Amino acid sequence: MLVAKLLGSSPLVTNATHTCSFINSVFTQSLRWKRKPIWLPTAKTKVFRVPKRPKIPEDEFKEIQRLYNNYRTYLRSTLKYFKEINKQNEIQLDPAVIEKAEQEDFEKCNQINDEWNKQIAADREIRLAKENEEKRLKIMLNIERQKEKKKLLQEQADDKIKKLKILSSTIITRKNIDEAIENALENPINYNKAINIDGEWYTEPTGIPPPKIPVTTDVQTEQARQ
């Protein structure tokens, strides 16, 4: 603990940390040495010290010089390129240039939009013409169907009229009622018929009166009951 206190109070030691606990503990300590402050003078041991000039071989010196020249060339080229880019950006960021570019872009977009509208209008005209033709054909087909339906109804009506005209000769009216009565009396019809298992009809001969059914009165019925 005493060592940690001494290190923490030293002006040449910074960021010194220490931890210490009781039994079965681990003691950790970190130190970071810092440079001499800038306001302190040169040390007395280094005031009159003259550093030796390094001796570089001629081949190595030429290689270093070549690399340095290449570095300066690349650096000047890069700086010049950045300056040109900066000038171009200044020109591009000019409000007049920006407004002109926006106007040109608007005109270009408007031209493209007009071309699209013309193409869409042409396609729409073709589509509408096709739809109108299909609609016309459908209407004509419906008209033909209606004509055929009316023709069929007219034929059916004509057939009914013909049948009624044929039957009109047998209709009894006020004019021919006497004639119809005389005809019925002269040509009696017997409806007493029978049929056998073979499907043959047996009819009574005409001119024979039907069997008489005895008629009983109420008095006779009461006497029969008594």
Rank of each mutant, 00 (worst) to 15 (best):
P188V: 00
R72A: 09
L167G: 06
E200C: 01
E144Q: 12
T206K: 04
T173N: 09
P37G: 09
I171L: 11
S169P: 06
E104T: 03
L137P: 04
Q29T: 15
V47T: 10
E148L: 07
V97E: 05
S10I: 03
K108R: 15
E58R: 15
G207A: 01
K46S: 14
A224D: 05
Y191W: 07
T19M: 00
E134Y: 06
N117D: 10
R32I: 02
S9K: 12
Q65L: 01
E204A: 03
E125P: 00
W33R: 05
L167K: 10
N69A: 13
E90P: 00
T217H: 01
P214K: 09
K149Y: 10
A194T: 04
I208W: 04
I213R: 10
A121C: 02
I177C: 09
V3P: 08
R35Q: 14
E155V: 05
L153I: 06
F61K: 03
Q92M: 04
D114Y: 09
E84H: 13
T28N: 02
G199D: 00
H18G: 07
I112E: 13
K108H: 13
T221M: 03
P37I: 01
K34T: 15
K149E: 13
Q92E: 07
I85A: 08
E148I: 03
M140Q: 14
L2H: 07
I64K: 01
F106W: 15
K163R: 09
I143Y: 10
N113F: 05
K165Y: 09
L40R: 06
Q65C: 00
L152P: 05
Q29P: 14
D94Q: 02
S21A: 07
D178P: 00
I181G: 03
E84P: 03
T45N: 14
G8I: 03
A180P: 02
R124M: 15
F82M: 11
K151S: 10
V97R: 04
V13T: 06
K80L: 11
N89W: 04
E133D: 15
Y68S: 00
